[in-house]
Simulated assay, not measured.
Amino acid sequence: MEYIIDYFEGGLAVCETKDGKRVTIEKSKLPKNCKVGDVMKLENGRFRLDKKETERQRKEIENLMKGLFKD
């Protein structure tokens, strides 16, 4: 299962799943270096940062934004 961190609120991370559902996860259960926009995968009961997918999505959003703000 994949989760994208939308924002942090206190000790919780509010995340979105691929199917658009919002879930909260205790921040203490996530890798210490995670930040908003990171993609987390739940594997064997533990969350891990998916750096490749995070970067792919970041580039995709960046390209969409460039298309919106063309001169």
Rank of each mutant, 00 (worst) to 15 (best):
V14N: 05
G10C: 08
R46N: 03
K35I: 11
E26R: 13
F69H: 12
T54I: 14
D38E: 12
V14P: 01
L49G: 03
G67W: 07
K70G: 07
F8G: 01
Y7R: 11
Y7G: 03
D6M: 01
R22L: 12
E26L: 14
K35H: 03
M65T: 02
R56Q: 06
V23Y: 01
K21F: 04
V36D: 03
E60L: 15
K66V: 04
L68Y: 14
M1R: 07
V14R: 02
T24L: 05
M40F: 07
E62V: 05
F8P: 05
N44S: 10
P31W: 03
E62S: 12
K32G: 03
T17R: 00
K41D: 00
V39K: 01
D6H: 02
M65C: 08
F8V: 06
K32L: 05
M1Y: 04
E62R: 10
V23G: 01
D50K: 10
D19N: 13
G45H: 11
N63G: 11
E2W: 14
E62T: 07
I25S: 01
T24N: 11
E60W: 09
I5D: 05
G67C: 06
E26G: 11
E43K: 08
K41F: 00
G10R: 07
Q57R: 15
L49A: 02
P31E: 04
A13V: 07
M40N: 08
I4W: 03
P31F: 02
L68K: 15
A13F: 12
K29N: 09
T54N: 06
L30T: 14
K59F: 12
G45Y: 10
R48G: 02
L64I: 14
G37N: 09
G10S: 07
R46F: 00
K51C: 10
R22G: 05
K29E: 10
G67Q: 13
A13P: 12
S28R: 09
C34Y: 00
G10H: 08
E16M: 08
Y3E: 02
F47I: 05
C34T: 15
D50A: 08
G11K: 08
N63P: 02
E43A: 04
C15S: 06
R56Y: 08
K29V: 06
V23P: 02
C15Q: 03
K70P: 08
L12W: 11
L68W: 13
Y3P: 00
S28A: 10
M65P: 01
S28I: 14
F69E: 10
F47D: 06
D50W: 07
